[in-house]
Protein backbone atom coordinates (compact mmCIF):
# COMPACT_ATOMS: atom_id res chain seq x y z
CA UNK A 1 0.00 0.00 0.00
CA UNK A 2 1.40 3.34 -0.90
CA UNK A 3 1.33 6.14 1.56
CA UNK A 4 0.78 8.72 -1.15
CA UNK A 5 -2.38 6.95 -2.15
CA UNK A 6 -3.47 7.07 1.46
CA UNK A 7 -3.22 10.78 1.65
CA UNK A 8 -4.63 11.53 -1.74
CA UNK A 9 -7.61 9.40 -1.10
CA UNK A 10 -8.70 11.22 1.99
CA UNK A 11 -12.01 12.78 1.21
CA UNK A 12 -11.65 15.42 3.83
CA UNK A 13 -8.08 16.06 2.81
CA UNK A 14 -8.68 19.77 2.79
CA UNK A 15 -9.52 19.50 6.44
CA UNK A 16 -7.09 16.88 7.48
CA UNK A 17 -4.62 17.75 10.13
CA UNK A 18 -1.10 18.34 9.02
CA UNK A 19 0.58 15.28 10.38
CA UNK A 20 3.48 16.45 12.48
CA UNK A 21 5.37 13.33 11.51
CA UNK A 22 7.31 11.42 14.06
CA UNK A 23 10.02 9.84 11.99
CA UNK A 24 12.20 12.93 12.18
CA UNK A 25 12.30 12.86 15.94
CA UNK A 26 15.17 10.44 16.04
CA UNK A 27 17.29 11.65 13.17
CA UNK A 28 20.29 9.53 14.06
CA UNK A 29 18.60 6.17 13.62
CA UNK A 30 16.99 5.36 10.34
CA UNK A 31 15.36 2.11 11.42
CA UNK A 32 11.68 2.50 12.19
CA UNK A 33 12.29 0.05 14.98
CA UNK A 34 14.25 2.76 16.77
CA UNK A 35 12.39 5.82 15.60
CA UNK A 36 8.80 4.65 16.03
CA UNK A 37 6.81 5.33 19.14
CA UNK A 38 6.68 1.67 20.14
CA UNK A 39 10.33 1.00 19.19
CA UNK A 40 11.57 3.66 21.54
CA UNK A 41 9.26 2.53 24.28
CA UNK A 42 10.81 -0.90 23.96
CA UNK A 43 14.22 0.74 24.44
CA UNK A 44 12.96 2.49 27.55
CA UNK A 45 11.55 -0.78 28.84
CA UNK A 46 14.64 -2.88 28.14
CA UNK A 47 17.02 -0.28 29.58
CA UNK A 48 14.60 -0.08 32.48
CA UNK A 49 14.99 -3.80 33.14
CA UNK A 50 18.78 -3.48 33.10
CA UNK A 51 18.63 -0.55 35.48
CA UNK A 52 16.33 -2.47 37.83
CA UNK A 53 18.87 -5.29 37.80
CA UNK A 54 21.61 -2.80 38.57
CA UNK A 55 19.62 -1.20 41.38
CA UNK A 56 18.94 -4.64 42.87
CA UNK A 57 22.60 -5.73 42.60
CA UNK A 58 23.74 -2.46 44.05
CA UNK A 59 21.35 -2.90 46.94
CA UNK A 60 22.68 -6.40 47.67
CA UNK A 61 26.20 -4.92 47.69
CA UNK A 62 25.12 -2.12 50.03
CA UNK A 63 23.47 -4.52 52.43
CA UNK A 64 26.90 -6.02 53.12
CA UNK A 65 27.29 -3.04 55.45
CA UNK A 66 25.23 -4.86 58.08
CA UNK A 67 27.62 -7.75 58.78
CA UNK A 68 30.35 -5.13 59.35
CA UNK A 69 33.24 -3.29 57.69
CA UNK A 70 34.96 -6.48 56.71
CA UNK A 71 32.21 -7.43 54.27
CA UNK A 72 31.50 -4.12 52.65
CA UNK A 73 35.14 -3.15 52.40
CA UNK A 74 35.98 -6.48 50.82
CA UNK A 75 33.13 -6.02 48.38
CA UNK A 76 34.39 -2.54 47.44
CA UNK A 77 37.96 -3.82 47.15
CA UNK A 78 36.74 -6.58 44.85
CA UNK A 79 34.95 -4.07 42.61
CA UNK A 80 38.02 -1.84 42.44
CA UNK A 81 40.21 -4.80 41.52
CA UNK A 82 38.27 -5.18 38.28
CA UNK A 83 40.37 -2.29 37.01
CA UNK A 84 39.61 -1.32 33.41
CA UNK A 85 36.68 -3.73 33.36
CA UNK A 86 35.02 -1.63 36.02
CA UNK A 87 35.21 1.27 33.59
CA UNK A 88 33.59 -0.83 30.91
CA UNK A 89 30.72 -1.57 33.28
CA UNK A 90 30.46 2.08 34.21
CA UNK A 91 30.38 3.17 30.57
CA UNK A 92 27.76 0.56 29.71
CA UNK A 93 25.67 1.75 32.65
CA UNK A 94 26.07 5.31 31.50
CA UNK A 95 24.96 4.35 28.00
CA UNK A 96 21.91 2.56 29.38
CA UNK A 97 20.94 5.54 31.50
CA UNK A 98 21.61 7.80 28.53
CA UNK A 99 19.36 5.77 26.23
CA UNK A 100 16.66 5.52 28.89
CA UNK A 101 16.67 9.28 29.30
CA UNK A 102 17.10 10.25 25.64
CA UNK A 103 14.20 8.13 24.47
CA UNK A 104 12.05 9.33 27.32
CA UNK A 105 12.76 12.97 26.52
CA UNK A 106 11.99 12.41 22.86
CA UNK A 107 8.73 10.67 23.66
CA UNK A 108 7.86 13.38 26.14
CA UNK A 109 8.51 16.14 23.62
CA UNK A 110 6.34 14.39 21.06
CA UNK A 111 3.61 13.94 23.62
CA UNK A 112 3.67 17.64 24.37
CA UNK A 113 3.45 18.42 20.68
CA UNK A 114 0.52 16.00 20.34
CA UNK A 115 -1.51 17.72 23.07
CA UNK A 116 -1.55 21.42 22.28
CA UNK A 117 -4.42 22.23 24.59
CA UNK A 118 -5.48 20.87 27.95
CA UNK A 119 -9.05 20.53 29.18
CA UNK A 120 -10.57 23.19 31.35
CA UNK A 121 -11.50 20.58 33.91
CA UNK A 122 -8.74 18.14 34.61
CA UNK A 123 -9.77 14.66 35.40
CA UNK A 124 -7.11 12.10 36.15
CA UNK A 125 -9.15 9.14 34.87
CA UNK A 126 -7.64 6.01 36.37
CA UNK A 127 -4.03 7.20 36.01
CA UNK A 128 -2.01 6.75 39.19
CA UNK A 129 0.13 9.44 40.79
CA UNK A 130 3.11 7.15 40.14
CA UNK A 131 2.40 7.09 36.43
CA UNK A 132 1.82 10.81 36.22
CA UNK A 133 5.02 11.64 38.11
CA UNK A 134 7.38 9.44 36.11
CA UNK A 135 9.25 12.37 34.61
CA UNK A 136 9.53 14.22 37.90
CA UNK A 137 10.65 11.18 39.86
CA UNK A 138 13.06 10.30 37.08
CA UNK A 139 14.59 13.77 37.11
CA UNK A 140 15.04 13.83 40.87
CA UNK A 141 16.57 10.38 40.77
CA UNK A 142 19.05 11.56 38.12
CA UNK A 143 19.98 14.59 40.23
CA UNK A 144 20.46 12.28 43.16
CA UNK A 145 22.64 9.85 41.18
CA UNK A 146 24.98 12.72 40.32
CA UNK A 147 25.13 13.78 43.94
CA UNK A 148 25.52 10.19 45.06
CA UNK A 149 28.43 9.55 42.66
CA UNK A 150 30.06 12.77 43.76
CA UNK A 151 29.70 11.82 47.37
CA UNK A 152 30.67 8.16 47.49
CA UNK A 153 32.48 7.38 44.22
CA UNK A 154 34.39 10.54 43.47
CA UNK A 155 34.27 11.59 47.16
CA UNK A 156 34.50 15.22 46.09
CA UNK A 157 32.62 16.76 49.03
CA UNK A 158 34.89 15.37 51.68
CA UNK A 159 38.12 14.25 49.97
CA UNK A 160 39.60 13.17 53.27
CA UNK A 161 37.47 10.02 53.14
CA UNK A 162 39.66 8.82 50.26
CA UNK A 163 42.49 8.35 52.74
CA UNK A 164 40.50 6.25 55.21
CA UNK A 165 41.99 2.78 55.40
CA UNK A 166 40.75 -0.19 57.41
CA UNK A 167 42.85 -2.69 59.35
CA UNK A 168 43.48 -4.79 56.24
CA UNK A 169 44.67 -1.74 54.33
CA UNK A 170 41.55 -1.49 52.19
CA UNK A 171 39.61 1.71 51.55
CA UNK A 172 37.29 2.03 54.53
CA UNK A 173 33.96 2.34 52.75
CA UNK A 174 32.15 1.44 55.95
CA UNK A 175 33.46 4.47 57.77
CA UNK A 176 32.81 6.70 54.76
CA UNK A 177 29.17 5.66 54.52
CA UNK A 178 28.53 6.15 58.20
CA UNK A 179 30.22 9.50 58.14
CA UNK A 180 28.17 10.52 55.12
CA UNK A 181 24.80 9.46 56.54
CA UNK A 182 25.52 10.98 59.90
CA UNK A 183 24.68 14.24 58.23
CA UNK A 184 20.89 14.35 58.55
CA UNK A 185 20.55 16.48 55.40
CA UNK A 186 22.43 13.93 53.33
CA UNK A 187 20.28 11.15 54.77
CA UNK A 188 17.11 13.10 54.16
CA UNK A 189 17.99 13.70 50.52
CA UNK A 190 18.91 10.04 50.19
CA UNK A 191 15.60 8.92 51.67
CA UNK A 192 13.71 11.28 49.42
CA UNK A 193 15.59 10.04 46.37
CA UNK A 194 15.09 6.33 47.06
CA UNK A 195 11.45 7.10 47.86
CA UNK A 196 10.99 8.71 44.47
CA UNK A 197 12.96 5.89 42.86
CA UNK A 198 10.48 3.46 44.39
CA UNK A 199 7.59 5.50 43.01
CA UNK A 200 9.29 5.45 39.63
CA UNK A 201 9.70 1.69 39.81
CA UNK A 202 6.23 0.96 41.05
CA UNK A 203 4.82 2.27 37.75
CA UNK A 204 7.87 1.34 35.70
CA UNK A 205 7.90 -2.36 36.51
CA UNK A 206 4.29 -3.09 35.61
CA UNK A 207 4.54 -0.66 32.73
CA UNK A 208 7.47 -2.43 31.13
CA UNK A 209 5.52 -5.68 30.98
CA UNK A 210 2.78 -3.84 29.12
CA UNK A 211 5.25 -2.20 26.74
CA UNK A 212 6.98 -5.47 25.99
CA UNK A 213 3.59 -6.93 25.23
CA UNK A 214 3.58 -9.47 28.04
CA UNK A 215 0.43 -8.29 29.75
CA UNK A 216 -3.07 -9.63 29.49
CA UNK A 217 -6.14 -8.27 31.20
CA UNK A 218 -5.73 -11.03 33.78
CA UNK A 219 -2.02 -10.55 34.36
CA UNK A 220 -1.97 -6.79 34.58
CA UNK A 221 -3.17 -6.45 38.18
CA UNK A 222 -0.63 -9.12 39.10
CA UNK A 223 2.20 -7.21 37.49
CA UNK A 224 0.98 -4.03 39.12
CA UNK A 225 1.08 -5.63 42.55
CA UNK A 226 4.47 -7.19 41.84
CA UNK A 227 5.78 -3.79 40.75
CA UNK A 228 4.62 -2.18 43.96
CA UNK A 229 6.07 -4.96 46.12
CA UNK A 230 9.46 -4.92 44.40
CA UNK A 231 9.55 -1.13 44.63
CA UNK A 232 8.73 -1.31 48.32
CA UNK A 233 11.41 -3.93 49.01
CA UNK A 234 14.00 -1.85 47.17
CA UNK A 235 12.93 1.24 49.09
CA UNK A 236 13.11 -0.51 52.47
CA UNK A 237 16.50 -2.00 51.63
CA UNK A 238 18.05 1.28 50.63
CA UNK A 239 16.30 3.40 53.24
CA UNK A 240 17.35 1.09 56.06
CA UNK A 241 21.01 2.15 55.79
CA UNK A 242 20.75 5.88 56.51
CA UNK A 243 18.02 5.17 59.04
CA UNK A 244 20.23 2.63 60.81
CA UNK A 245 23.05 5.17 60.87
CA UNK A 246 20.85 7.92 62.25
CA UNK A 247 19.35 5.57 64.83
CA UNK A 248 22.81 4.44 65.88
CA UNK A 249 22.35 0.84 64.88
CA UNK A 250 25.23 1.16 62.45
CA UNK A 251 28.15 3.12 63.93
CA UNK A 252 31.85 3.66 63.62
CA UNK A 253 33.85 2.05 65.06
CA UNK A 254 31.83 -1.04 64.26
CA UNK A 255 29.76 -2.69 66.95
CA UNK A 256 28.70 -6.11 65.84
CA UNK A 257 24.98 -6.75 65.85
CA UNK A 258 25.60 -10.42 65.67
CA UNK A 259 28.41 -12.02 67.68
CA UNK A 260 29.15 -14.68 65.04
CA UNK A 261 29.95 -12.38 62.16
CA UNK A 262 32.98 -10.10 61.97
Amino acid sequence: MSSTANKESTGTSSLSSKPSGKSSACCTCSSPLLSSSIGRKWIVAITGILLILFVSGHLLGNLTIYPGPNWINAYAEHLQSLGPFLWVIRLVLLAIVGLHITCTIQLWMENRAATPQKYAVTNTLQTTIYARSMRLTGLVVIAFIIFHLAQFTWQGFNPVTRTWIDAQGRHDVYRMVIAGFSNPFVSAFYLLAVGLLAMHLSHGISSLFQTLGLTTAKLRPLFERAGRIIALVIFLGYASIPLSVLLGILRYPHVSLCPFVH
Binding site: K22, A114, T115
Partner: peptide, 14 residues
Amino acid sequence: MDEEGFGNCSNYYA
Protein backbone atom coordinates in the same frame (compact mmCIF):
# COMPACT_ATOMS: atom_id res chain seq x y z
CA MET B 1 -0.44 6.34 13.60
CA ASP B 2 2.99 7.87 14.22
CA GLU B 3 2.75 9.84 11.01
CA GLU B 4 -0.52 11.37 12.14
CA GLY B 5 1.24 12.92 15.09
CA PHE B 6 -0.51 11.09 17.91
CA GLY B 7 1.41 10.91 21.18
CA ASN B 8 3.02 7.83 22.68
CA CYS B 9 1.52 5.46 25.19
CA SER B 10 2.71 5.97 28.76
CA ASN B 11 0.51 3.20 30.12
CA TYR B 12 -1.73 5.63 31.98
CA TYR B 13 -4.85 3.62 31.04
CA ALA B 14 -7.05 6.72 30.90
